[in-house]
Amino acid sequence: MNPTLFRLRIAYAKQGRGRFLAHLEVQRALTRMVRRSGLPYAVSQGFNPQMRLATGPALSVAVSGAREYCDLTLTTYVKPVDALRQLREAESSFLPVLDVGYVSTKEPSLNAAIIAQELCVTIEDAPVTMTQEALKAGLAALRARDTLEVEHKGKTKVFDSATHVPKDTTVVTKGSTVQMTLMLRISNQGSLRPDVLLSHLWQAANLPDLTKRHIGEGSIRLDRTALFCEDASKDAEEGALRLPL
């Protein structure tokens, strides 16, 4: 490892109409922001030198992110307050920069470190039977099964229910809109996709299949509200979480 390199962690949001961006489009937009910012970014070695910028876990198209992260390798130390200012001057409207800070170059990558995500699901024109009790009972029923089987591109993947189905959810109802907050595991060995979990949940909670809703029937929106790493500090409890920055 090159001791003269610095790893700047950037917290940003994927917001507004920007939630329709695909992960590759976000990555491309971030590298362009960095180049515009004038920060002294490092480039990779080899035939096709590229900016050294690594993003965290991908967000699907149409899912927003309140606080996402990427790690940028710099060749010179820049004061965080200056780096933040430079990035903000170069940011694009759908991907505003929230905060920056240095992390050790020895720490594992964002994709390896991040193990949990908090998701907020907003269902407009929700069926009246979609109550906190029904949703909690649905989650309990899913957890009671040993495994969840998921078909993806012709292959069946098996997920351990106890690990992948959240224990609890907070539900807020405002008029006909239901907002449900869930904490989900995330790992680069394979995570249960939120939309797949939800379609199992509707079934387990005896709700109509909301994933097959048509245009005009009220939208379902997914927003990722937070990402978490494992808290490995000495005095942390087993399984405790911390923010990546």
Binding site: R17, G18, L21, A62
Partner: peptide, 19 residues
């Protein structure tokens, strides 16, 4: 237009707001 975009391919083509 917004409600249609979850149902089409590559909706980022229609969101403008480019830098």
């Amino acid at each position: 237009i917004e409600p249609l975009l979850a149902h089409v391919e590559r909706p980022s083509r229609y969101i403008n707001g480019e830098y």
